[in-house]
């Protein structure tokens, strides 16, 4: 296997079957360091399944995911260790409601990176400051707005110093006026050189902050290109049809 030194994640012939349904039907792609990849496609096309296969939240039926040179689909690897390096942001935030914002953020660094409480809190506070929420450190998730929750969810992942961030429709559960504040944080991250894979319906985001856009349908990656080409010169009929509906 020739290892492209730049490929942070290599996906090889990935398949996921639910009974006779092939949610992922043979996906091969690479995600390079520093890339921001947006995945779009109709509902049920397998976007979430693909994203969740990257950190093995969904266990693929066949195929491989090579992360930083390690085949994490191999049963023998310690998936928990590699997941520390792959942040994930969910549509419904999934903050821990029984913990303060600060404890949400320091739990994993203290338990897994063996950081001291002070060390972990210092990092958490500086990240909270970065997203303008340092005054909410002692609040509980229920006391935050949707946009604030999602910003916290993003920095909670960042506390682990991940090498890649996975986003599954991070703005879909938000009121429209809160979408912007979350996208701003994501743009900021992208500018900082974070490698990101983003499933989203925000075409505005897909056009700007992004190095590559991927179109999925029926469990396959139908087309991928730079945002300019992708939106100006779609090649496949299915993508043309999809774009005509969403834009």
């Amino acid at each position: 296997m020739d290892v492209n030194s730049n490929a942070l994640i290599r996906v090889i012939d990935l398949e996921k079957h639910y009974g006779s349904l092939h949610a992922l039907d043979g996906i091969t792609t690479e995600i390079n360091k520093g890339e921001v990849v947006v995945v779009i496609g109709p509902s049920g096309s397998g976007k979430s399944t693909f994203l969740r296969s990257l950190n093995l939240l969904e266990e693929p039926t066949n195929g491989h995911v090579i992360f930083e040179g390690n085949d994490i689909t191999d049963k023998k690897v310690n998936i928990n260790y590699h997941r520390q390096k792959m942040g994930m942001v969910f549509q419904h935030f999934n903050l821990f409601p029984h913990m303060t914002i600060l404890n949400n953020m320091t739990l994993a660094p203290i338990k897994l990176l063996k950081k001291s409480k002070a060390e972990a809190e210092e990092k958490a506070m500086s990240l909270l400051k970065r997203v303008g929420l340092e005054d909410r450190a002692k609040a509980y998730p229920a006391q935050l707005s949707g946009g604030q929750k999602q910003r916290v969810a993003i920095v909670r992942s960042l506390c682990m110093d991940p090498d890649v961030m996975l986003f599954d429709e991070p703005t879909s559960a938000l009121d429209p006026e809160m979408v912007g504040e979350v996208l701003d944080v994501m743009r900021d991250l992208a500018r900082d050189g974070m490698t990101m894979v983003v499933v989203t319906h925000e075409m505005g985001f897909a056009r700007e902050a992004v190095t590559r856009v991927v179109f999925m349908d029926g469990g396959k990656m139908i087309e991928e290109n730079t945002p300019d080409e992708f939106f100006k010169n779609p090649k496949s009929d299915r993508l043309k049809e999809f774009l005509s509906k969403v834009i």
């Binding site: 950190n55 939240l57 928990n80 260790y81 997941r83 520390q84 792959m86 942040g87 994930m88 969910f90 419904h92 999934n94 903050l95 821990f96 409601p97 029984h98 739990l107 994993a108 338990k111 897994l112 969810a153 909670r156 992942s157 682990m160």
Partner: peptide, 27 residues
């Protein structure tokens, strides 16, 4: 407890028992 709680814990790198102990069980 919502499945998302579990997934959030695992995605941070916590193992099954840690996720149970710190996230699921208290709730």
């Amino acid at each position: 407890i919502d499945e998302g709680q579990f997934e959030a814990g695992r995605s941070l790198g916590l193992n099954y028992v840690q996720t149970m102990t710190y996230i699921i069980a208290p709730q």
